[in-house]
Design a protein around this nucleic acid. Sequence first.
DNA 1: TGAACGACTGTTAGCGTTAACATACCCAAT
DNA 2: ATTGGGTATGTTAACGCTAACAGTCGTTCA
Lengths: 316, 316
Amino acid sequence: MTVSRVLRNRGDVSAATREKVREAAKRLGYVPNKIAGALASQRVNLVAVIIPSMSNMVFPEVMTGISEVLDETDLQPVVGITNYSPEKEEEVLYEMLSWRPSGVIIAGIEHSDAARAMLANSGIPVVEIMDVDGTPVDAMVGISHRRAGRKMASAIVKAGYKRIAFLGTKMPLDHRARKRFEGFTAELAKSGLEIADQEFYDGGSALKKGREMTQAILERTPDLDFLYFSNDMIGAGGLLYLLEKGVNVPGEIGLAGFNGVELLQGLPRQLATMNSGRDEIGHRAAEIIVARVNGEEIDQIVELSPKLAFGDTLKR
Amino acid sequence: MTVSRVLRNRGDVSAATREKVREAAKRLGYVPNKIAGALASQRVNLVAVIIPSMSNMVFPEVMTGISEVLDETDLQPVVGITNYSPEKEEEVLYEMLSWRPSGVIIAGIEHSDAARAMLANSGIPVVEIMDVDGTPVDAMVGISHRRAGRKMASAIVKAGYKRIAFLGTKMPLDHRARKRFEGFTAELAKSGLEIADQEFYDGGSALKKGREMTQAILERTPDLDFLYFSNDMIGAGGLLYLLEKGVNVPGEIGLAGFNGVELLQGLPRQLATMNSGRDEIGHRAAEIIVARVNGEEIDQIVELSPKLAFGDTLKR
DNA sequence: TGAACGACTGTTAGCGTTAACATACCCAAT
DNA sequence: ATTGGGTATGTTAACGCTAACAGTCGTTCA
């Protein structure tokens, strides 16, 4: 019991005993068994973070935001990857909940019924992140992707572009990309415009795919004057391609992506994009978990607003 | 006990009972408590993976390799991030070991004495990855970064470049970058050559930094004819910069990076690089853990050899 | 003088599972 | 009828900690 007290800094232990315990622990290479500790105390200092992918640029940044906040506490993030598959999400969630974490941060608001039920029954704080177009199980932090699509469409229309194409991922399960697309087309429709052409990809190097898609779509529909990419990486590929071809950007063809990834800063021209505030999403989500774990009151629904960056590829 | 048997598919349970248990579990939203299970069975199906960073492109790919192998088993990776700090590494390791994982995969072979002691005393398989220039605690999978630096130097010398610069990270704790640099300079010395200039950076967008460093170093030392970058990202930045300036690459100035990241495929010109086989490193490391957990014999030391890709930026 | 208190250390039970063994039951073979 | 063997289920005691409570001892204060 005294050892337990020393190693957790809890309760009074005389300085002499404390030293003796510390020394012995070090000498023996003793590492406490958190499994037993967690079982006894019914407390686990882990926060489950469930995201679709790590190779997307987007989620590592969200993770950074989460870590920054949790580093100030004794909570620790544990990551699970779903590969955009609802079945995998369910499995991962089940697996994580069976470790009885102190909270869950999960990407998206579309989940299987079973997953939603697990979350609702878990009895721990649950924050659904990235997207606010829907009803959360518990708390929610993100942006409206529909609104983001709308906003970009209206900026493009205002700049006078007419022959507008959409280039994105094939993934039918990327709900956020889908919502942006829906918002985008809905807003164009208001001005009597329609998507002039579209192109989808999956797998492979996004930068390279961006080039290839751009080439393909312009060969098919040469009179396009704007390309809206569903992410910055393929947008960057498209930009590099057009610059090489000597196309006048944004005069002849305008471009925009989505996300505001750091990478873009190194490109010859700044791609127009919309910052989705990933770092802040991570921050706010973690803050909600921390507050709830400490029994504090806090806003459960946080809608952030994405900021449009015109860069050099969208006329003003 | 019967419930436990059903949920773990272990031992005989009649079909009727099994169904009843499953139904009840689903209805109640019962999620077994792995903490108690692990304590009782003394088995934890987790593998600790300790890496310096996630925003480096390199480690996500290693993770992919690890996951591919572990997905075939009932083991699961759990990631800890050290930010290249030995103190953080020690903390993370302690934290992870206190959950009694089935194995540890840890980047690098440089660790604090305390960390090394923990690993040695843990009683579980430990695989140190990325680097083989040193002595492992237990198992080891990686490439020789010294040899990689040598190999690149000898290719550059053979191509006839003479005024060679090195551009890299400031991080004194990136031992692998340091070893590449050492190997590089050692090999140049054999041909009577020395580094003509060097430039270091830290933080920020690597692509942008690559541009800035390239500009800075060429302003300072205009007669350089080769730039060796310690990673592909800054190399890509340098390449974009030189192409914009209309420099003849690789005639006037040659370039090379390190790692073989997927991103490069989308660049206008293929950067010379050296593939560090990250995916295979992950694979082999995970295989060692799996084999050891199953009590099988397996090679404990695996040295992979990096492959040089000349691309379009290194004369042949 | 002794009651009260604080500082420290110890004892006990229990956290929710599983390993190992025990029992109950049925059927077939003697 | 008895034995043996399988199938199906139950019982018990850990696993290694911590919460809660119970001492012990020296000091202070009325």
